[in-house]
Design a protein around this nucleic acid. Sequence first.
DNA 1: GCTAGGAATGTAACCGGTTACAGCTGCATC
DNA 2: GATGCAGCTGTAACCGGTTACATTCCTAGC
Lengths: 345, 345
Amino acid sequence: MVTAREIAQLCGVSVATVSRVFNRPATVSATTREHVERVARELDFSPNESARALSRQQSAMVGLVWDTDHRRPGWRHPFLQDLLLGLKSALSSHGYHLLMLATSDDARDRNPGVSLADPVAYVSMTRRHHLAGLVLIDSGTDADAFATFAQSGLPCVAVDVALAGPRATYVTSDNAGGAAEAVRHLAALGHDRIATITGPRGNAPAAARTEGYLRGLAEAGLAARDDFMVTGDFYRESGFVGMRRLLARKDPPTAVFAASDEMAVGALLAARSAGLRVPADLAVVGFDDIEVASLVDPALTTVAQDKPGFGTAAAGALLAMIETGTAPDPVHLPTKLVVRDSCGT
Amino acid sequence: MVTAREIAQLCGVSVATVSRVFNRPATVSATTREHVERVARELDFSPNESARALSRQQSAMVGLVWDTDHRRPGWRHPFLQDLLLGLKSALSSHGYHLLMLATSDDARDRNPGVSLADPVAYVSMTRRHHLAGLVLIDSGTDADAFATFAQSGLPCVAVDVALAGPRATYVTSDNAGGAAEAVRHLAALGHDRIATITGPRGNAPAAARTEGYLRGLAEAGLAARDDFMVTGDFYRESGFVGMRRLLARKDPPTAVFAASDEMAVGALLAARSAGLRVPADLAVVGFDDIEVASLVDPALTTVAQDKPGFGTAAAGALLAMIETGTAPDPVHLPTKLVVRDSCGT
DNA sequence: GCTAGGAATGTAACCGGTTACAGCTGCATC
DNA sequence: GATGCAGCTGTAACCGGTTACATTCCTAGC
């Protein structure tokens, strides 16, 4: 590894000048700059990142906080790969890398009920590594933990968690809008007994989807019914159970909006096991547009999220905060209703 | 952020002693050590990672090289989340973090046909960041690129690519063994016309699965037939096309081993569109055990890979190389045949 | 011709640790 | 009582950059 000192010697200038060429080129005369640049290119020199981070008190890295929720074992993020790919690509165009932070497993064992191992540990780690900012992926419903991040003063952008602070913002789908559209779609097909299986309490996207469900009903001129709302937890099993309960009502629904595709699949299975045909006897709409949605039989009509958009938007918001020091407005990505076969026509 | 200097002053010792407490505790007297540890704990001190990396020429980070292959757009890794989770957790127990490396998009645009953007850029980045090692995820078939890594002298562990070198090793499934077991399973069910849809040429796991297919046939006393082997690319579409071609043979197979679940699903769809019932008219086995496998109808019998095992094994091998300096033997994780409904009984 | 001011560069003090080496202490050995 | 050695600790030189401040040089203005 060639150092700035060697470049400086070869060019007959001081290290300071070499450093300036890489950081504030405008302050160096054209001839000197070009000379240094040429030599640096020939010797394949670029500044050592560890030294740079130490000196600047800021590294070219952004931390990723992504913990598994111990209350929801086996939970998979519906589009982690797209999210990471989007983040990686958007960050790389500004020269940043993504550091997947990990706390020692000890911390988790001590607080088995807490989703985010220890926000304080993450913040401290972030400072020790001089990270430029943090991306937080929702991994549960632990609002307190997120507050710690928002208050830390570190640039933070959360995915699917409403985070507010002078240097904190978030990106999420237009969950309410998407849900409302799904319900209007069902209403337009003639359904007037539309139920919902919601996500877990305390989860922001789940709450927004429920809100959208109610708004959709209102817009279609339908009354909301308490007995048409059952609480799920985003998992398939809860969709199955929820659907069973809905079908046991005196006056069962003819359509369901499930707040996740996984639960929609559960609902599909419950309908089948109850001898109902989908979509003839029951219409089902999901949310997420996970891969499985197009594969189940009948293929699931669902509200698609802008998966690559999450990564891009999160990276954009974070970089803006890092560079300007102020938090941009939260991003609400548009959703898109993907009509397949589970609602009929 | 409190520094070692402050701890040293408070304890009335030199910074060197504070440093020793954290790095070679045995060389410090018990009383001094305990005093420093107590003060450090009270002030929530831990050494600054940037400074430590610079000084030691080695950071507590491991790089992840994961590029999307531009010849295979839309490709998803069958179990990225498990892999990352496994890596993260195994690395964290040794105090390491995972840095997702990204090269600038420019590099990709210049070589659109190349999967790994630029191995040289990755190696240089690794050095500049003083990374302790690299994890390479297969993202295509670019053997040359991997050779560059193996020869760089950096501790490298590849996933699903045979990597050899003084500090390079790999982890993969027992692809041949799993495939052979699948074929034996089909043979045991009475099939004697067993075809295969292979993965792409040049891909190591694909080649091993084909080898296992042939071995399985031999073990079952069946002859291999050229017209029962069609080449796919792991994608669903190629499974569909491949199955169509197989079904068009004079003497069509009664069973297929698809080298990926995606292709198995494609085969399922092709069989259905040809009016065949699965498993009555055609038995199908896949490979991977992706989530979808259990959801298609009929549920797919498949060779499951040890998904969390990959992360653990890769991290273990890498840490061993980092600590001992020598490469452990390649890891071949056992597979497991998961019998569902797509082969009948 | 003299000076003010701006541009270009060098000097040196950081950033916050690690570690080779040297020095000091105390105890066992002769 | 001198010697040797082991154990502990301090001193200071790194690691490789960044940047405030000082210095030099040159030109425009009076």
